[in-house]
Amino acid sequence: MPRTVRSVAIIALCAIAAAVSAQNRVSEYAVKAAYLFNFGRFVRFAPSDAVNNRRTFDICIVGEDPLGLALDDLTANERLDGKPVRVARMKTAGEARTCAIAYISSAEGAHVRTDLDALRGLPVLTVSDSANFLQHGGMIQFVIIGNHVRFAVNLDAVRSAQINLSSELLKVAVSVNGETPAGVRP
């Protein structure tokens, strides 16, 4: 039964995501929450001690949390990479070293650089919606294009962290070379 409930929840969320028209910030973050979870489907970590030691697939929110409970609802009882998904919230990036995906909210502002430094070289997929995230060595940055939530990828940063992103994911990325298209609202 909970599986059915979950499916219904996902369907509902997808519907919401599609209906996003960005005027509604809540909807936008609900879509971003879904994307965060969906990234988990297309990410593969190269085997290492750090990766092997993970018991759970942690999606961590560093700093201020704009997503609310959307992500928690979405990931309840889900598994990614064969491990149960857990949503964790933490003050600093230093605490996110064992996470699989680290979402750094735009509210971090200037802290983004230090956050990225703290995670550099670690098998953690960094995602943020702050501007110039990719230029600072971030891996995936949310962008808004034509009222749709999209994302751009810095493939060099991804590779240097021994992370493999599926070509399926890269196919739908706005760009993969670390640049963000001009005229996009962060």
């Binding site: 997808c14 995501a17 599609a18 996003v20 879509v31 879904a34 994307y35 969906n38 489907r41 297309f42 749709h148 939530v149 999209r150 994302f151 599926s166 399926e168 994911l169 196919k171 739908v172």
Partner: peptide
């Protein structure tokens, strides 16, 4: 198969 990610990430163009 090929439209899975497009659906997941709302990418009509792809």
């Amino acid at each position: 198969f090929n439209s899975e990610s497009a659906l997941l990430f709302d990418d009509q163009q792809t």
